[in-house]
Amino acid sequence: MLQIPCPWCGPRDEVEFRYGGQAHVAYPEDPAALSDDDWGAFLFFRDNPKGPWRERWVHVAGCRRWFNAVRDTATHRLITTYRLDEPPPELP
C-alpha cells in the first residue's frame, strides 16, 4: 500500500488512486500525419526503467485530479509529486 502525496489533497493511501503509466507522453498534434510506425510507437511503446521515472496517477477516490510523480520503480519509493502545470523535476 503505497502512500501517495496528492498535490491537492496531501498524502493518501494507494487504494484511493488509479495508475496512469508513463507521464509526459503527449497525444500527437496531428495523428493523421503520423506513419503507422510512429502511431504504433505512440500507442504501445513506453519506457519501463528500473529506477526513478515520471509517471501519472489520478486521485479517483479524492479530488479526481490527475498529477505526475517521480517514483523509483526499483524501491517503490515515491520521490515527489507535481501538478500537471508544473515543470517536470529532474530525475535524481
Binding site: 496512469g20 497525444y27 489520478v58 479517483v60 490527475w66 500537471l84
Partner: peptide, 11 residues
Amino acid sequence: LDRFEEWLQTE
C-alpha cells in the same frame, strides 16, 4: 467518466 476527465485534464 474517467476517460472524459483524463483527456480534459491531461491533454
